[in-house]
Simulated scan of single mutants.
Amino acid sequence: MNEYLKVGKIVNTHGIRGEVRIIRNTDFDERFDIGSILYIKQNGTDDYIEVKVVSHRLHKQFDLVQFDNLTNINDVEKYKGSLLYVSKSNLIPLTEHEYYYYEIIGCEVVTESGERIGKVKEILSTGANDVWVTKSDEGKEYLIPYIEQVVKKVSVEDKTITINPMEGLLD
Rank of each mutant, 00 (worst) to 15 (best):
L84M: 04
I144G: 11
D27M: 15
V131R: 04
V53A: 09
K135T: 14
K140I: 11
I34C: 13
D137Y: 07
K9L: 05
Y85D: 00
H56F: 14
K119V: 10
G18V: 08
T13C: 11
K135V: 15
P145H: 00
P145D: 03
D29E: 14
S113H: 05
D33T: 12
D63G: 05
K60I: 13
E141N: 10
V11P: 02
I23S: 12
Q149G: 04
S87E: 08
S55D: 15
Y100M: 03
S36C: 12
N164R: 11
D46K: 14
P165G: 01
G106Y: 01
L94F: 01
V65C: 10
I144F: 11
E108W: 05
L58G: 14
E103G: 08
D171F: 02
D137A: 10
Y99V: 04
N12C: 02
L169S: 00
Y85S: 00
T71E: 15
R31S: 13
I16W: 07
Q61L: 08
G8S: 10
E108D: 14
E19L: 10
Y79P: 00
K88C: 00
V133L: 15
V53G: 03
G139T: 10
S82F: 00
V7H: 06
S89D: 13
I147G: 02
V150K: 00
G106A: 06
I40V: 10
T126K: 03
I23F: 07
L170T: 07
N74I: 08
K88E: 02
F67T: 08
V11T: 10
Y39P: 06
G18C: 07
E167P: 05
E108M: 11
E141C: 03
